[in-house]
């Protein structure tokens, strides 16, 4: 009995699959390395951050300085960051996710402080 010569794929499916798994593992390792590098960079900046916290007096992040409880979420009310009542959740979507409409476009004029 002789075998016929046939064209066969160079790689068996198992090898290709395990290769794909290995690539994913490499991806995970790259993410880990990226995380380590970023953490190291962040740690180097930690003293500057601490100085900023001492000066600003709060570690609240400047990312919702237009929300109802304004900039200092942790100081607005100690038992709840949201002003109405203890344990009240914030309103959604404003204050949490979306800008309010510009009050300049309202039909009734509103002004705050000097024009």
């Amino acid at each position: 009995m002789t075998s016929t010569v046939r064209r066969r794929s160079r790689f068996r499916p198992a090898a290709l699959f395990l290769g794909a798994l290995a690539l994913l593992a490499v991806g995970l390792c790259l993410c880990y390395a990226h995380g380590i590098k970023a953490a190291r960079h962040s740690a180097e900046q930690a003293p500057l951050r601490e100085i900023a916290v001492r000066i600003v007096g709060s570690s609240d992040l400047a990312i919702y300085n237009a929300a109802r409880y304004l900039r200092h979420v942790t100081l607005t009310d100690v038992s709840t960051p949201f002003q109405e009542c203890p344990g009240c959740f914030d309103y959604f979507p404003e204050a949490m996710s979306a800008n309010p409409p510009g009050f300049n476009e309202l039909s009734t004029q509103m002004s705050f402080g000097a024009p």
Partner: peptide, 28 residues
């Protein structure tokens, strides 16, 4: 951590007129 979570960031972190540019330090 690389693209900065567009769309999702505004849902989780909220909005602000003055919004600082920043990337997160990975914390898994």
């Amino acid at each position: 951590f690389v693209l900065g979570a567009p769309l999702l960031k505004s849902l989780i972190l909220g909005w602000s007129v003055l919004y600082p540019p920043f990337t997160f330090t990975p914390s898994v």
